[in-house]
Design a protein around this nucleic acid. Structure first.
Lengths: 187, 187, 187, 187
DNA sequence: AATGAATGAGCCTTCATTCAT
DNA sequence: AATGAATGAAGGCTCATTCAT
């Protein structure tokens, strides 16, 4: 049920009708309302779905990486994974950002995501550099990832996925090195 | 006339009614259509307005900076200027990104903006490092700026404006230094 | 549902609002669109309804008439029956003619009606006179019927129904007689 | 000024905008209103224009015909003249009939036309047959003319102009002959 | 005489939402 | 659980009409 919701992104806009969503999910409009009560709820469910999937991805990526440095790379890779780069997902994110302008719940969800990414980065960075630096670097990395992401929505502006990953990692490593960390580069 | 268009951003969503816009501009709905023909045209006019203003800002910033390094800093400062950081402007950008998912003209405008920022960066970077590096760094800087920008839409996620500027400049300088450029740091 | 559509004619103009139609049919505007998709479709449905009813009327009239001469009279009677002479129906026809100026589908429907009337007349006339004459007479009779019909829209210009019927039949018989056919007059 | 008004018929519907009419007449909407006060007035002016032209045509046709029989033929010819058969004129008539459903003035104008045609026919017929017959025949001829006319609006249903004229004249002569009049046939 | 600018009113259409089944 | 039918509320857009110039 929730899987089909992701299709919202396909329309890439808030104009998506409950009817369209329902049809794509193979159910009637009435049933969609029976499940979700309200249109905003459908959007929020879709957000939660994408966020949850992303959370799982990141967690498993972190889990299977041995060292903090590897974990950092894993986080970046997960953030710029093929699934997250899919057109519909990017479009959906965009919509969520707009939605967050109105809906406090949407804003909360988006902040939860941002905070989680941030604290994941900080936690691992903090094993290599002091907390203040860790925070700063984490902010930079996070911003860059989001920037790459939003540029993806333009279909032609941003770098391809491998370059994007390399770019963020370069930045990360550069920052670490400038803070005195020596680490074996591995993309 | 065009000044009032910016007010679109205040609503921060595609849900903005032509009626709302018209009222805020102190005119009737009919008159708004008399001038702009269609709602999409109103949005595009607003985009052009913001883009134009931003273009002027950047151009003048570049013009009054003496060295390439200073020009680069100026571009960053302009991109993260108070005007561009205003809530309504950020919200409007967001809306434009969504709009670009449908409207080819909106997408075109957005790409024009991105390309302009990119070539401004590259042109100045290329005086310091080889073109390939210049392009790479420009992409990184551009992505970071956009990322900071979009995070601003969350009202609380991103860094404040001074930190943001510093962050991007740090990244820029780091990149240049790592490519062998020596330059007097000046934020 | 389709019965209520005829009410369009009551307004007697293209100015009829979907809202008016819907209200007269005892439903909401939205429901009217739910069924007919578009306003033009409502008009076309009304046309089809009237045309179908008329078709049934003519067919049954022809069926229950024994001889070709009787069938011809039956066609005339049916074309000028009370139902077809009702103010709203006449008004609706008028509207359809106007509509046909734009809508190819409306024009098509109207031509189908004209062709059917024509071929019904020709088929029966051809049993009495050669085809060339049959065609000519059919055209004359058809034109006269339509003329009587349109004059009815003026509320006071044309003849009353019985006179109208007599007039067309007179013309028919006159034409036949002049072509050498002898037939027992029966109105 | 009034000549350009005829262009209304080009649109062939009541949907014609005052703006369209004005533009076609080479003036601004505001000026059109300055002249005609209201949209209905524009339509009425157009009706009067067409009716007047037609009146002149008929009057001169009657005037230059020597005998009553010739005058009758002349009336028919005038009624089915090339000018009256022009697409825009036919379309305009149609619109007027619809308009007459609402506007009493439009209805009045249309009835004036009908009455004038009728009395012209009757006057001349009455020189050949008793008044009762004259009235009857006049009604038939009038109806047939209007019928041919309206069929013209379908672009493809009705007979061409020469056949149409012949058809009405045939009917006229047939009627006269059957009432005992002997006359030299001349189309 | 002529027009650009301005508007109130209204119409078609869409849509989220509900309800009876 | 599921849906067709139904609706109130809006929204974009058009248009006849007016007004200031």
């Amino acid at each position: 049920m929730s899987a089909t919701i992701r299709e919202i992104g396909l329309a890439g806009s808030l104009d998506v009708t409950v009817g369209q969503i329902a049809k794509r999910a193979g159910m009637s409009t009435a049933l969609a309302h029976y499940y979700f009560e309200t249109k905003d709820a459908i959007f929020l469910a879709a957000m939660r779905h994408i966020l949850t999937e992303f959370g799982i991805l990141v967690r498993s990526a972190i889990g299977s990486a041995p060292t903090p440095a590897a974990k950092l790379n894993a986080i970046i890779d997960a953030s710029l994974s093929r699934e997250q780069f899919a057109d519909e997902v990017v479009a959906a994110w965009l919509v969520f950002y707009v939605q967050a302008q109105h809906s406090t719940e949407a804003a909360r969800l988006l902040r939860v995501y941002a905070r989680r990414l941030h604290s994941n980065l900080v936690a691992n960075l903090n094993t290599l550099v002091p907390r203040a630096q860790a925070v700063r670097i984490a902010q930079g990395v996070g911003a860059m990832i989001d920037g790459i992401y939003i540029r993806q929505a333009l279909h032609g502006g941003g770098p391809d996925r491998p370059s994007a990953r390399a770019m963020v990692k370069d930045y990360l490593h550069l920052s670490l090195v400038s803070d005195g960390v020596t680490l074996e580069t591995e993309h």
